[in-house]
Amino acid sequence: MLRGAKVGRQLARISGCRYYSKSEVSASLSSSYLKGHVRTDPVNVLPKPYYGGIHMVTLYTGSSIIGQQGAKFVSSLLQSSRVPVEVQPIGEEDEYFKSVLRNRAAVHVDINADEKSKARALKICNDLDLYVFKTRTRSFPGYKCRFPCVDIQMIGQNNMGNYSELEYSPVKGVVEALSVVTQAGNRKYLEHAFAAAVDAGRKRVTLVNKAKEWPLNDGAMVEDAKEIHCKYKDCLELELMEVEECISRLVTNPSYFDCLFASDRYATFLATICSGVCGGANLFSAVEMGDNHAVFKPLQTKLSLTNYSNLSAYGIISTIVDLLEYLGHRHCANELWDQMMRTMDDGICTVEFGGKDSDEYVISNINNQLKCTGLGGDEHSEKSE
């Protein structure tokens, strides 16, 4: 009797299709690793770009009108905050990666969903090992949220599985796509996610998975999560939930959730649902983080939502708040956030949320009211406390 590979070769001869042996598939995977589709080497880390007490930050604007408008908002907010942060505008895609590698932090305000832009975003995530994606969605009264008291912290995996881009066609009309995950990658993500949840003051984390359908892929992450959770069981509750149940609860009772963990297979569309439930992606921001680099984006940009004609002022402000916190200017970040909440309480609202004001007016109003102390602001706030 024919067994194993012999059966495959015999069937290939009969059907006229090419047979791929185990060694050929392994060689294909190895070549994909060598090409950089799956990161195996550590990221080259340059010295911190801190010149004369000023942080340098990459500002990617692209060539679109939306990107140019977003860049003006970012620059004006940083100038009004008087923080020691200077942006380096980048419009050329070829210079973007080098600038982020050098500056370690970037603000991305362009929205593009074409194949080239997607490839560039994946390259940066892989080459800089930005293995975590974070966004926080919450309800703002009067801003299209049907549910009160919603506050969900999303911490998703960002550069495993589908990000490997491993696909090939063994025969005409047949395509195989591989989702490659590693235990080391899963554990690194989960260690960061649990620590971030504790730092954010969260009490319960929900790991969204399909371990029943994917026992080796999702099942491995579930087992690692249970093991790592033992270190945090005194301050964090771990809940395992199937994707279908999670989606059902998000659209009917989103206030049930506190913090969501998910692999890259589910993180992006769960973030889309969370933002939609809370009023829209144009209210929120996102960040892709690694151990040494971070890229900050309005959630519109992260989700590549091209149905918007412009970048929302609220998403830009939230992005700058995240950036300032990351750079250590927490006092100025809190002040900027308070000013955005003040505009909402004062009834200053853009057209997309039923108001009559423009995004430029919202930004200008906040710029006129900012009271950040700028240089030494965090030290001043600590002394005042």
Rank of each mutant, 00 (worst) to 15 (best):
R3G: 03
V7F: 09
I14M: 09
C17Q: 09
K22G: 13
E24Y: 12
V43K: 03
V43S: 07
P49V: 06
P49Q: 02
Y50L: 08
Y50I: 04
I54R: 11
H55N: 10
H55K: 04
V57K: 02
T58M: 02
G62L: 04
S63T: 10
I66W: 01
K72M: 08
L77I: 00
Q79P: 05
R82P: 04
Q88Y: 13
R104Q: 10
V109M: 10
I111N: 11
E115L: 13
F133D: 09
T137G: 05
K144Q: 13
Q157A: 15
N158W: 05
G161C: 07
G161L: 03
N162A: 10
Y163K: 02
E167R: 12
G185M: 02
R187P: 09
K188D: 14
K188V: 05
V198F: 00
T206G: 13
K210H: 12
K212A: 08
C230A: 11
K233F: 14
E237R: 02
L240P: 07
E242Y: 10
E242H: 06
S248L: 15
S248G: 15
R249F: 15
R249N: 14
V251T: 15
T252P: 03
S255T: 02
C259A: 09
C259Q: 00
L260W: 06
D264C: 15
R265K: 10
A267T: 08
S275W: 03
G276F: 05
G276I: 06
C278N: 10
L283D: 02
Q300W: 00
I316E: 06
L327Y: 11
G328Y: 11
H329A: 07
R330T: 15
T343R: 10
M344V: 10
C349K: 14
T350M: 01
E352Q: 15
F353V: 09
K371Y: 08
G376A: 01
E382G: 09
S384D: 14
E385W: 07
